[in-house]
Amino acid sequence: MLKFTLKRFALAALILVVAVTIMFLMIRAVPGDPVSIMLGPRATPELKERLIAEMALDQSIPKQLLLFFGGLLRGDLGVDVFSGRAVSEIVFEQLPHTLKLIFSAIAWSAILGIALGCYAAAHPNTWIDRVTATLSVSCIAAPAFVVALLSLLIFAVQLQWFPAIGVGEGFWDTAWHLVLPSFAIGLSWVGYIARLVRASMLEVMGESHIRTARAFGLSERRIISVYALRIAILPVVTVIGVGMGFLLSSAVFTEIVFARPGLGKLVIDSITTRNYPIVMGAVLVSTGLFVVSTALADLINALLDPRARTAT
């Protein structure tokens, strides 16, 4: 398991370096003079020159890349040229808001999706299964931005049950502010996970060790929750791991619609203003988040199913 863990994290580190390098090159390829955009019409030539030097924009692209990774190894993501604050400080200030959003969305959608999937698998081809299937596919088909806007109009504007904007203060207020945004980005995952669990469960339920468990007279509930679900959930863990990337992109939109701070909004604002240090810092952290979550999903899979350790 240790060897597997080391291999998996080495691969994760490599993916991170490649992804960040690609992002670095893409950002440099974006049209528009970053210094003019950042400083605006009032900037003096001296100020522009100083900024160019501070951002190392007068260096070649490979040199800039080396400087970036050099700083990264020292734990230095650079300084925001506008505020003079450390980029890491700015990024990590925003990160908790995005993590709360993503994890709350994943949590409720996984709990509900797994329950629905199990229930449908327990009643295959019955009206319950069909209703669950219809609901699941409807959830998958509902675009997050439509759900976000409609839920805002219904639950925030019309009924005024939930707040429309912001992140709140304190545990309960924060949780209350998370309801609508996490509902918006988690809804399609409910359907997706439910369908995945159902299909996986039905496959597992037909396997010989389940028949053996039945022969021993174990209750169906115990068979499902202890023996079948443990195996059936493996693809869900993988999907959730990979899904972190999709959730991050959904979070961008959700953060804008619900006026929430977060990594997504930070990246959008920084790209618009060509604030390269912040863009790179935020991209590095979000890519790292994605890579670590997929690596963790693999590790969890390996823990749950030893066959996965030898498969890679």
């Binding site: 925030a156 504007v157 005024q160 707040p163 429309a164 904007i165 619609v257 006026a259």
Partner: peptide, 19 residues
Amino acid sequence: ILPIDDESTAEIAFDSGEI
């Protein structure tokens, strides 16, 4: 003072009585 760059979001926040 709440920074909301999207006009539609700000309108929804106003309509819901939050600002």
